[in-house]
Amino acid sequence: MTRKILVVALQIIVAMITIPAVALATMSFENRNNDGPSIVFPGGELVSGELYSGPEPDWSFTNDVSTIHLQLDNPLSSRLIWIEESDGKVYITSDYMGTWLGRRWKHWAVQAYEGDGLAVVRINGIRYERKLVRVFYSPLLEGVIDKKIAKYRSRITREAIESGETWVFELAPREGGLNL
């Protein structure tokens, strides 16, 4: 009798894990080619929205933007991400990069750093072609840290950046690159 109860309990537990896991995997699969990410799942190529061309924008408008869509050109996948503007430049960050699990979770950052870094961001419905350039040491990082703490109540520190726990990328223009 006890064995029977244990078997039924085990069957229920396995079902409670398997069915939601299948649902999440299906939702992730369904979203993979969408025009942009959902809140939870990565999406595909950013297609809709005007493609910006012209002089470097005044990025201060991003202070009122909570999240943006970031798409790497290689591979073509997109996700939601926070954005920080500082000293006329825009930055994105990736936390938890000091662990294997973090690098698996935030694999886009590894792909951007090890690849060409070419990306498209969509902000307020407008697409901007940019290049992700990782920033290791720069006096400008203080502004990024202050902005991320003020905007998102983040616990980011300069030590975390310098130790590789947090990766910072400038969304640099595709031509010209960093100007530190």
Binding site: V14, A15, T18, I19, V22, A23, T26, M27, E30
Partner: peptide
Amino acid sequence: LFSISLLVSLAI
């Protein structure tokens, strides 16, 4: 379990 999982996937 397989049938329910398949049904959930198709519904989604």
